[in-house]
Design a protein around this nucleic acid. Structure first.
Length: 583
DNA sequence: AGCCCACGGGG
DNA sequence: GTGTACGTGGGCT
């Protein structure tokens, strides 16, 4: 048996002889660079069933084509219960059979039927994308595919998750230009006129169908040759991460359609597969197997609070300098000119793509740390809001603790009593102190043990009683959410202390992003209790947290007044105060 | 105050 | 893809 170590970049599954085979895509380490695809045929999909009656249920299930039915204990909302674990042959069978199983007379409910197969694998095998993973098995084939070594590997025992890697990843940004005299280019009419690239390894090129005197440019006969060069460049640069700006909705769909018209296969994947675009309503996602495509635009919208999120504006915000710019409507005139006007377009295209690389270098470390904590692929984590990130983190934790994740609710809105607001004292204030409660909500969750699985009806047990509402939360044992929040807080303290001791700059930087990621996840949780799309949704928990928050806020304001402060404004999770100088 | 709708961002 | 779906700010009633 051989052993391979690699950074786990991505994961999916394929079907071979009606069997689902997990594929781990990685960047090999500890030897000359190259990519690996590690296959695991041994994992099978499953769901849980909560039956009314076990014998009836086992009977009814025997009619269906199932691989295995086993009885086991799982914690569900704080109670240890018996469930049936049903293993099926193929992930698609779950899609086909889940309604049938749910509708059986003997079945009360089905559980964890909507955890995608590859996510199930990551959770059950305790693997974390962007970490180093070790696999044992045999090399199926090792070919030289230009110019990187591609290794196909068969996993023969459980893969192991090792430490986080500090390996530098190869990032390549790209950007296309097209133009139309009347406005936005139309994919049916307007050809791609330029494609520019920039990498974190120093690669910078602008390819075009027109000539330029600038040294970073290269000219191609026609659009078809240009797109071929695009494919060649991605294969030869062999990036782990591909970056774009609005590339999910503009660059990739555009180039895909142009390539189709010209008959150029867009074989961009490490396995030779072509670009796929998932069209989920307004949530487009362009996918390349074995490489992580990240559209920084969605990232910027989520992470920067700005009035708008054009590349120019975001660049200015992050780096304080202006990027050279050509207004959209002038691209056409520049392109149809010669000399300086045209050269300016080349320079603009390069500036754009270089800006994307710089933004990527600055913003990706946080997404990578989130990925390492959440434990889902970077591709997915980069496209999730913080609520979904937390949810997947919790689903993993639930598995670790032997809990079943709650099913998804519907989607409905509900008014929650807001926080306490003190109308501001009019006037111009100086030397203001701000007291922030957001960091205190996690402590309230822990100290009052606020969790759906600790909420009780009667008060025969020792419990915390919520002000205003009177909701009761068991004091022991610790609830699921409080224990997770506790671990997150402890972890963050631990990471911060390691960070302060570390002498290595890049390690310190990584740890800083890690503690930032932990902070984000922690501070997201309390707000999720009143999102009906959240699996651990609980209006009682939500109200309890804000009720205790108001309680603490008022008490803290009173206390601050005794120490000579004068609160001038308060809202929900904090208050502003000044030192009362008259005293 | 609530509901519906359009828009973002890319050239 | 173990499928079904974004967030928000502005205008309107």
């Amino acid at each position: 048996m051989e052993t391979k170590k690699f950074v786990l970049l991505d994961i999916d599954y394929i079907t071979k002889n009606h069997i689902a085979v997990i594929r781990l895509f990685g960047k090999l380490i500890g030897e000359k660079e190259g990519s690996i695809i590690a296959l695991d045929e041994s994992f099978r999909p499953y769901i849980y069933v909560h039956p009314h009656d076990f014998d009836d249920c086992i009977n009814e299930l025997s009619e269906l084509k199932l691989l295995k039915v086993e009885k086991l204990h799982k914690k569900d909302n704080g109670e240890l219960k018996d469930f049936l674990k049903i293993t099926l042959k193929h992930p698609q069978d779950i899609y086909k059979l889940k309604d049938k199983i749910r509708d059986l007379k003997s079945v009360e409910d089905i559980r964890e039927y909507d955890v995608p197969f590859y996510r199930r694998y990551l959770i059950d095998k305790a693997l974390f994308p962007m970490n180093i993973v070790e696999v044992q098995g045999k090399i199926l084939n090792s070919t030289r595919s230009s110019p990187n070594t591609k290794c196909i590997f068969e996993i023969q025992s459980d893969p192991k998750n090792l430490e986080s890697s500090l390996e530098e990843l190869n990032m390549l940004s790209f950007n296309i230009e097209a133009c139309n005299p009347k406005g936005m280019p139309m994919v049916k009419e307007d050809p791609i006129i330029m494609i520019s690239f920039s990498s974190n390894q120093g690669f910078q090129k602008v390819f075009s169908t027109k000539k330029s005197l600038l040294d970073f440019t290269e000219t191609f006969l026609n659009e078809k040759e240009l797109i071929k060069k695009y494919v060649d460049t991605i294969q030869s640069e062999d990036p782990d991460i591909i970056l774009g700006y609005n590339s999910d909705r503009f660059d990739f769909p555009y180039i895909k359609e142009r390539a189709e018209r010209l008959g150029v296969p867009l074989k961009l994947g490490v396995d030779g597969s072509s670009l796929k675009i998932r069209n989920n309503g307004r949530r487009n996602a362009a996918m390349i197997k074995g490489r992580i495509h990240i559209d920084l635009y969605s990232n910027m919208r989520r992470n920067l609070q700005l009035e708008h999120h054009t590349l120019k504006r975001v660049y200015k915000e992050l780096f304080g300098e202006d990027k050279i710019e050509i207004p959209g409507h002038e691209v056409y005139t520049c392109w149809n000119n010669e000399g300086e006007r045209l050269e300016k377009l080349f320079r603009y295209s390069l500036a754009d793509v270089m800006a994307v690389t710089k933004i990527g270098e600055k913003m990706l470390p946080l997404s990578i740390e989130l990925t390492r904590i959440v434990g889902q692929p970077l591709f997915d984590v980069a496209r999730m809001g913080s609520g979904k990130q937390v949810e997947w983190y919790l689903i993993r934790k639930a598995f670790e603790y032997g809990n079943l994740a709650p099913n998804k609710f519907g989607r409905y809105l509900r008014d929650v009593v807001g926080g306490h607001v003190k109308e501001p004292v009019k006037g111009l204030h100086t030397d203001i102190v701000y007291f922030d409660f957001r960091s205190l909500y996690p402590s309230i969750i822990i100290s009052k043990n606020i969790s759906p699985d600790t909420l009780i009806e009667d008060d025969t047990e020792k419990c915390h009683i919520t002000p205003e509402f009177g909701y009761k939360f068991r004091k022991t044992p610790q609830g699921f959410i409080p224990s997770v929040v506790g671990k997150l807080l402890e972890n963050r303290i631990r990471v911060k202390s390691i960070m302060e001791e570390s002498k290595d700059f890049s390690e310190r930087q990584m740890l800083n992003f890690q503690q930032e990621a932990l902070k984000r996840l922690t501070n997201t949780i309390y707000g999720l209790y009143n999102h009906s799309t959240f699996r651990w949704y609980s209006i009682e928990c939500s109200e309890a947290i804000t009720a205790w928050g108001r309680d603490f806020l008022k008490k803290t304001m009173e206390k601050s007044e005794k120490h000579g402060f004068k609160p001038i404004y308060a809202d929900t999770d904090g208050f502003y105060a000044i030192l009362d100088r008259n005293e």
